[in-house]
Simulated scan of single mutants.
Amino acid sequence: MGEWSFLSALLDKVQLHSTILGKVWMAILFLFRIFILAAGVDKVWGDEQANMNCNTKSPGCKNACYDQSFPLSHTRFWVLQILFVSTPTLIYLGHVLLVIRRENKLRRRVELKFIRHGPIKAPKYSNEQGRVQVKGVLLFSYMMQLLFKVLLEVAFIVGQYYLYGFILMPSKITFSEYPCPAPIECFISRATEKSVFIIFMLAMAGLSVMLNIMEMFYLIISKMKDKKRTSVASEK
């Protein structure tokens, strides 16, 4: 898990500025995707090409069969998926940290009563503990990162289907192109075990999409309720 520690530290900071559903998404990302990927998948897949047995010893035939069937290893594909899907959240974190930094400077100016350009606006997104309220420009930034996460997850789910052409791992692959002199059969090791991991990672990606969509609706409904409450209070 050492190679994931830097990403883990960054995403842990996002939890301070996320909703409840955002925290659940973070837990799923680490506990059910990164942890499983780091702890178990590499041992199941191992050296895929070396573990694949073909009924031929023709030079280059086994390599061509593997390359056509698996243009990109499942494990490397999932690593790319996690990194790409995490990127919008990290961009949002950068925006939050920028807002906090600006408002901390503003807070210090207020404390020192240093006014050069008229009245100083009070900080409206963060408090003195560095906690932010998801509203205004931060709400837009948060919604955009949720939207991009949904789009990226869906793109990787569709991409996995088009890249490999199947969901379950086949136990046998038939290959008849160059440089094989005749049609050959290659057998995949631990095909059933690999199929379980493929289904599991697809299910986690689908759950991630659902959580992000639910969070978008949750934010929209909660902000509409807040606006309604404010309007009722102002009328009174």
Rank of each mutant, 00 (worst) to 15 (best):
Q145T: 07
W78G: 01
V96I: 12
D226K: 15
A27G: 08
L151F: 03
K23E: 10
C180F: 07
A50F: 14
R109H: 04
L98F: 10
N104K: 06
M210Q: 09
Y125F: 13
K228S: 13
D12G: 14
A233C: 00
S5T: 13
M144S: 02
K62I: 13
L29I: 00
V99A: 09
P71A: 05
T56A: 05
K236R: 11
H17W: 11
V96D: 08
S208K: 05
P88W: 06
L202P: 08
F187W: 09
L72V: 10
I198E: 09
A122L: 12
S141N: 08
F84M: 10
L31E: 11
W4A: 02
G94Q: 14
G130Q: 09
V99Q: 06
S8M: 07
I82F: 02
T19Y: 15
S231V: 15
E153D: 10
L80P: 13
M214A: 15
L146W: 12
M204N: 02
M26V: 11
R108E: 03
I188R: 05
L16H: 12
E177P: 12
V158D: 03
S5V: 13
F175D: 03
T192E: 09
F30Q: 10
A64M: 07
A38S: 12
Q129R: 15
K13I: 09
I220M: 11
F148A: 00
N127Q: 09
F35S: 06
E103C: 01
K228E: 14
R107I: 11
V99D: 03
F187L: 01
C65E: 03
L106G: 08
L163C: 00
L11M: 01
G165A: 14
I167G: 05
L97H: 08
L219Y: 06
V96P: 04
I157S: 01
R102G: 11
L138Q: 01
S86D: 04
F148L: 05
F30I: 00
A122S: 10
R229L: 14
I28G: 03
A122F: 07
M52C: 04
G136Y: 02
L139F: 12
S18K: 03
K227V: 13
R190E: 09
M204R: 04
E177V: 11
P59V: 01
N53C: 13
S234V: 15
I82N: 06
V209I: 05
C180A: 00
R131L: 12
E3F: 12
L152T: 04
S73H: 15
D12F: 07
V14E: 01
A182K: 10
L98Q: 14
G136M: 06
I100Y: 01
P123M: 09
Y92L: 02
L93C: 08
I213W: 08
K172L: 00
Y92M: 05
N53Y: 14
G94E: 00
